[in-house]
Design a binder for these strands. Structure first.
Lengths: 230, 230
DNA sequence: ACCTGAACACCGTTCAAGT
DNA sequence: ACCTGAACACCGTTCAAGT
């Protein structure tokens, strides 16, 4: 039973919800303004009372995605906060953040791709999209700083380290999502980037993620050239 | 002076060339079958004698991109090979490979994005696309193995390490390309992933890349849990 | 204020028909 | 074999007009 009119004033919300569902089910390319109008029981022109164009509507969906990601990351932080103060937990918190991050990407591939789709995310971005994305980033930044204070990470520009951590796990996420990294069953190994067709891996994905997290943390904690002054 | 007929038999090559130029100039979304036909001086239907669909044509452009990437990586390997045998050069070769990789992405953003665009690269892929992509990957695999033999990298599944290295630098590349990581001038630092609008960074990009490379190599070389058996 | 109907300028793709 | 003309089934977006 479809409500046959949206004069009640929340066409905007209904469109975003319909778009989010389409993004989940069929990916960004499955979203058309016409199908959204149809789903909302409204004319093709109606959405343009609420969004300047398709890009703006998709940006709203991406923003909801960033809020969801931020929520997941905040749960991790809440969990780890008590231990972190005592020291020695900084690495564990960062590992949990990375797990949560990749987990989000694998759980919501359509949203994740949209959130990092150049057409949507490339400047100019709306301030609200901007802010929701930055908020998620700030969490890793704070976790990085905390781990630096307990000597668990190398010193240096925390924002740089956070960017590097995020870009590493972003690379992992998109390659996993696109099936461009295959994980075989011969031990802990990732295998043959861009290799053969469908196989049944899936459980080894997790151990591959764990190895990546370990290596990223090791890199971020190595003394290296940054430690010359200590 | 446009040649007004392509009966001479290489419409296929002309279409791929025109598409590659459009990809460079305007990105993948700038490519339309109709504009390609127009550029080649041929009817809209003609391309379909040579390609099943648009995806297949773009895959040919992506394949050329992988060949170019592979060429760049092979130049690095040729340069480092002599020293690598003597040991101690393995890390330097890997660093050069990563530099060349990111350099390619920044030089040819349109091609790079196309090469990792899910619609093109997601299975089923043509065997030739498959092979050209794998070839580029094999290079890092061999370099990883060489560095393991000289004790410059941790032991363990070389393919996994190669995948992790590639995914880290892939993440760096796409975030740089999309302007989602900003680099400010306060030292060596990357800054504020997904932060503000246009600034004039550009020179600091290089030092940010260098820091990433250093951290990735440190992570790949740390003894960690993998070294329990040594 | 919010929505509709109808149009405009695009797409990718197909298919009979031409040479 | 290779290409054309014309059509089909889509798009995003606009704009006068309705309520």
């Amino acid at each position: 039973m479809v409500t046959d009119t949206y004069h009640h004033g929340n066409l905007r919300a209904a469109l975003v919800a319909a778009a989010a569902e389409l993004v989940s089910d069929a990916g960004v390319e499955g979203v058309t303004m016409r199908s959204l109008s149809r789903a909302a029981g409204v004319s093709r022109a109606a959405p343009y009372r609420h969004f300047a164009d398709k890009r703006e509507l998709l940006a709203a969906v991406a923003e909801a995605g960033f809020l969801d990601l931020d929520r997941r990351l905040s749960e991790v932080e809440g969990r780890g906060a008590a231990g972190a103060v005592e020291g020695g937990e900084g690495r564990a918190v960062l590992a949990d953040l990375m797990r949560a991050y990749v987990g989000f990407a694998l759980d919501r591939p359509g949203h994740y791709r949209l959130m990092f789709s150049p057409d949507i995310v490339r400047p100019p971005r709306s301030v609200s999209l901007q802010e929701s994305a930055s908020r998620a980033f700030e969490r890793s930044l704070e976790a990085i700083r905390a781990a630096q204070e307990t000597q668990e990470l190398r010193s240096g520009d925390a924002a740089a380290l956070a960017s590097i951590m995020w870009s590493a796990v972003h690379g992992l996420a998109v390659l996993l999502l696109d099936g461009q990294v295959r994980v075989t069953s011969d031990g802990s190994g990732g295998h043959a980037l861009l290799a053969g067709d469908e196989t049944d891996e899936a459980q080894n994905v997790e151990s591959f993620i764990e190895l990546t997290i370990e290596i990223v943390l090791d890199g971020l904690s190595s003394a290296a050239s940054e430690a010359r002054r200590s």
